[in-house]
Design a protein around this nucleic acid. Structure first.
Lengths: 343, 343
DNA sequence: TTGTAAGCGTTATCAC
DNA sequence: GTGATAACGCTTACAA
């Protein structure tokens, strides 16, 4: 009950060589159909399971993909992971997952672990305070494919999967302007993160293109938490004149801001229209429902793994593809619709 | 740039034996401090990384824990995973994660993969339609520790981590009764799943203890989705007399039910009081805020990994502990508070 | 405190 | 089609 069955045991049982057993189990073409059949039967009968370590050791390939996420318990990240897992699993890869908890130190440690575990490739969404990618250097220099998604570094060496944040933010803002807003505020995440910088850019561009002046006073930089939404709302209530449109860089924060304003007697969307970002399920729960940018998490995960596997199979070269941009769209709901009804 | 550094290379470099290098790197006590220092330096300098496969192959231990979840993209499951990852990582274990997508077939495949990958231990929350645990037999018979959490099988051989669902449901129902409800309905998940059977039991017991009669008509069995909540609400609107209290087995469904009733002109909680289950973030977004059972996902994950590692270290025996029950509590909010205000 | 040598279970290479 | 043999890189008796 305790000793593992090896290909040697099967070989002995069938009076053939271990080599043939190995070939048989790996569907090598040059092996007699009958023999293969016998090998399979014996293997099942004897409770054989292939030893991945021996195999990895020999083949120098692990069939494992590493993933480093900032936080596991966010709706977006878990959708991404769901997509990754599905594709990876179909292709016979395992996923090793670790979280940086939004700190570089842990990200560095995670990267080292992944490296030591010899993942065939790595997928990373970087932490808030990651400012360079030196800790991924071992991957670069060894040619281990490394793909960044969602939160990607500036570093131009890196292949990235993103949405066009500038464009998405532009669309969101332009929509508010279309609805008649003229005095707009943007609630942003940390401007150290280029993701949020880009959304801010999109916001600015939309204002400019519509001849609305922009000043730094229009931007409230926060950590996008529930609390941040509340305090942003309080700031907004103090503004004179009060803005008539708000574009928030995530839904969690947008919802808490919306609720706080609403409780203060502000009518949404008539006094103030609001647009969020991510299209979390909560957009459909808050009243009025929140307009948002649909951010295709599962697809992003699927795409990330698929691209990585392409590199691994040599079907494409990491160096060539540089940025994959996924489509994102504005989902208009009641929180920003001034006339008539939205879906 | 391509060849990996091994302990042999380091040994040669320092003119000592590979054995000493191995010991040095593993902090073996019987090695000269000076030597260890030199080994560390050379290792860093030469870009050495330990080969986990060779090590696993030799040690017959992988430092890997497998996790099979039904669905990655649920708030509860990702909280659990976050807890698991943190504890596992601290203890030097890696997590291999796969999802069954709620089907036994995939669960069987996942179990096999985990087995073939020789995880040191396995954590499982079973799929909707899993009716027995035969596919985990290889783990049982090899003595590989296997822990079930949240959705656990009936099978008494298994160690499980759960909350007391009967008690939680009892508390939720009793609370509704305290608030003056006398005509109660329970919206349940599939009664094939014992989790939901237990919650139904708790519901029944609470009715019985308060001399309220129970009939099967009080139970609406659904898949607990958003849509299910809507159609359950429609059924409820047709009832005569309409119930005055609803206990729903998850928050997603409870919220959509609440909103549908509310839109139909029913006043919550005065006409109908509602209690959900899970304490998802959405409970604090819907108006009125939803009373719910707080289900400690992160703690459950932490506890699961911690117990597993205890078994692995031989600190405790799987056979002995049988069920770990975590505390859960009722969080009272406005959706069920008839007089005064709730937090 | 250090070294020798065997072995973990595969698979690649070469030979038949 | 099949087989012998040598790695892959590490750990651990056992020996010195």
């Amino acid at each position: 009950m305790d000793k593992e069955t090896t290909i040697y045991d099967i070989a002995k049982e069938l009076s053939i060589s271990p080599t043939t057993v190995s070939r048989g189990l790996n569907d090598h073409p040059a092996v007699n159909k009958k023999t293969r059949q016998r090998i399979y039967e014996a293997a099942t009968l004897m409770g054989y399971r292939s030893n991945t370590f021996a195999s990895s050791l020999r083949k120098q390939r692990t069939n494992t993909i590493g993933v480093i996420v900032p936080m596991l318990n966010s709706n977006f990240q878990s959708s991404v992971l769901a997509g990754m897992e599905r594709v990876a699993n179909e292709a016979g890869y395992n996923l090793i997952i670790s979280q940086s908890l939004e700190t570089v130190q842990k990200e560095i440690a995670n990267a080292k672990t992944m490296f030591d575990n010899r993942v065939d490739g790595l997928l990373v969404s970087i932490a808030y305070d990651t400012e360079n990618v030196d800790h991924f250097e071992p991957f670069f220099s060894r040619g281990i494919p490394l793909l960044f998604y969602d939160r990607v570094p500036e570093h131009k060496k890196c292949t990235s999967i993103v949405i066009d944040n500038i464009q998405a933010a532009y669309k969101a803002t332009a929509h508010l302007i279309e609805q008649g807003c003229r005095n707009l505020v943007h609630i942003s995440g940390s401007l150290k993160v280029n993701l949020y910088q880009e959304r801010l850019k999109g916001f600015k561009y939309a204002l400019m293109d519509n001849n609305i002046s922009f000043s730094d006073a229009c931007v409230i930089s926060t950590n996008l938490s529930v609390e941040a939404g509340i305090s942003a709302a309080q700031q907004i209530l103090q503004m004179d004149p009060m803005p008539d449109g708000i574009f928030v860089s995530n839904d969690t924060c947008a919802v808490s801001c919306l609720k706080t304003l609403s409780q203060a007697g502000i009518s949404i969307p008539n006094d103030v229209a609001i647009v969020g970002f991510n299209n979390d399920p909560i957009t459909r729960i808050v009243e009025p429902n929140l307009t948002s940018i649909n951010y295709p998490g599962e697809e992003m995960g699927e795409m990330a793994v698929r691209s990585l596997i392409n590199y691994l199979d040599g079907a494409s070269d990491v160096a060539i593809t540089n940025t994959i941009t996924l489509r994102s769209e504005l989902v208009v709901r009641a929180s920003s619709t001034r006339k008539g009804e939205a879906s």
